[in-house]
């Protein structure tokens, strides 16, 4: 998935599909908001609107405008590109490691994943040597540990390794 098929420079997902997708996404979101509002009551009681009143109409407007956007998206030139596959793979090169990074944080704390992320980035994408990479990858978490946890007393998430070290 990190290496989608590299076609000719001119190929990639079309702007039209992206617009359609976004409009459908906002439509879905609008639907969820409407449903959630109905759960808490959308009426106008004697003392003003109920809890779901505003979200309900907000949801309706989202859904309505999403349909307009959907129709407009159909008119978008179908040959126009959202981005080329090459560009998309660049984006995914950041997006996938970053997603894995945030998923790891609840389990490993913030320090170890940060070290891994910076290392991966600098070695794989930046093609830096190990000495500089390690210096940055270790230096940044240590800097935040010292400033935030030690100096400003702001606890950051920690995992099993920190617990072993007794931090």
């Amino acid at each position: 998935m990190a290496h989608p098929p590299h076609g000719a420079p001119g190929s990639g997902p079309t702007q039209r599909n992206a617009e359609l997708g976004t409009a459908l996404l906002t439509l879905l979101f609008g639907g969820i908001v409407i449903y959630g509002s109905l759960l808490v009551g959308v009426g106008w009681s004697s003392d003003g609107p109920q809890a779901g009143f505003f979200p309900f109409y907000v949801g309706l407007v989202i859904a309505g405008c999403s349909i307009i956007n959907l129709v407009q998206a159909l008119r978008v030139d179908p040959t126009e590109l959202f981005a080329e596959w090459g560009q998309m793979s660049q984006v995914l090169k950041v997006l996938i490691p970053a997603t894995i990074y945030v998923i790891l944080i609840p389990y490993l704390g913030i320090y170890v994943p940060s070290f891994l992320l910076i290392t991966l980035f600098m070695i794989w994408l930046g093609k830096y040597g190990w000495p500089l990479t390690l210096a940055v990858a270790i230096g940044v978490p240590v800097f935040f540990f010292l400033t935030l946890e030690r100096w400003f007393l702001i606890p950051l998430p920690k995992g099993p390794i920190e617990a072993m070290l007794g931090l």
Binding site: V94, A98, I110, S114, L117, F121, M122, L125, K127, V136
Partner: peptide, 9 residues
């Protein structure tokens, strides 16, 4: 490529 992961952190 150095600053991006640091910004992410």
């Amino acid at each position: 490529s150095i600053i991006a992961p640091v910004i992410l952190v």
